[in-house]
Amino acid sequence: MTATRRGRPPAGPERSNALVQAAYQCLAEGGFERFRMRNVAAQVGIDHSSIHHHFPTKQDLVVAVVDYATRQFWSTTPLDGGPVERLRHHLAALRQKVIDEPELHIVLRELDLRARRDPQLRKIIASREEGWRNSLRTLLGDAAAAEALAPGVDPATGAELVIATVKGASLASGRAGDVLELLDQLLIRV
Rank of each mutant, 00 (worst) to 15 (best):
R5A: 15
L171K: 10
W132D: 10
A156Q: 10
A41W: 02
A146R: 12
I188H: 04
I51Q: 06
A145W: 00
A41D: 02
H48P: 11
Q96A: 15
P9E: 06
G45S: 05
L111H: 07
I99N: 08
D154Y: 10
N17T: 11
E33F: 01
A150P: 10
D80W: 02
E103Y: 01
D47Q: 11
T165E: 08
L79G: 15
S173V: 11
I163Q: 13
R133W: 01
R122F: 06
E181H: 13
E129C: 03
A126V: 01
K97A: 15
P13F: 07
V190P: 15
E101H: 14
H52K: 08
E160A: 14
P155C: 10
R71W: 01
A69P: 03
A159T: 05
L94V: 05
E129P: 00
L94M: 14
P10C: 03
L182D: 14
A150Y: 01
V84P: 00
G152N: 08
G31Y: 06
S135W: 00
Q59H: 11
F73M: 12
V190N: 12
V66T: 02
K123Y: 02
V44D: 04
L136P: 06
H54Y: 15
L113S: 10
L91F: 09
G152H: 08
Q25V: 11
E129T: 00
V162I: 11
D118C: 03
I163D: 03
L183I: 03
A18N: 07
S127C: 04
A156T: 09
V166I: 09
I46Q: 00
V98L: 11
R128P: 07
V179H: 04
Q72W: 02
M37C: 09
M37F: 00
L94I: 01
L149F: 05
L61I: 03
L79S: 13
H53E: 05
A159I: 03
H90W: 03
D100A: 14
Q21E: 15
Q43E: 12
M1T: 09
R5Q: 15
P119F: 02
Q25R: 15
K97F: 02
K58L: 09
A64R: 06
T77F: 02
R95D: 14
L61E: 01
E147F: 05
K97H: 12
I51V: 13
A22G: 06
E110F: 05
P13W: 11
T70C: 09
G12N: 06
E14S: 10
R137K: 14
R38A: 12
V20K: 06
G81H: 07
T70G: 01
A42M: 09
H53K: 11
I51C: 03
P83Q: 11
F32L: 04
L27S: 06
V84R: 13
F32D: 03
V107E: 08
N134A: 14
A126T: 04
R109W: 04
